[in-house]
Amino acid sequence: MPIRVRLDERMKAKGMSLTELSEKVGLTLANLSILKTGKAKAVRFSTLEAICEVLECQPGDILVFDEK
């Protein structure tokens, strides 16, 4: 899929674990894992907003278009 989720890098930069992020964002660990592994088909604006708020970043920092 050309859209890649770069959640790993942002989490590492903030020193946050997946469990911690799931608690702060209000998503289940399973759903966050789907998002992190790139299995998600779509992301809601509200989810993106919550993640950006917790990780203090822009949507473009998390989602990138990968042509390869």
Binding site: I34, K41, A42, V43, R44
Partner: peptide, 8 residues
């Protein structure tokens, strides 16, 4: 349904 389930 699959898309709905995989919408985070």
């Amino acid at each position: 349904r699959e898309e709905q389930e995989l919408t985070i």
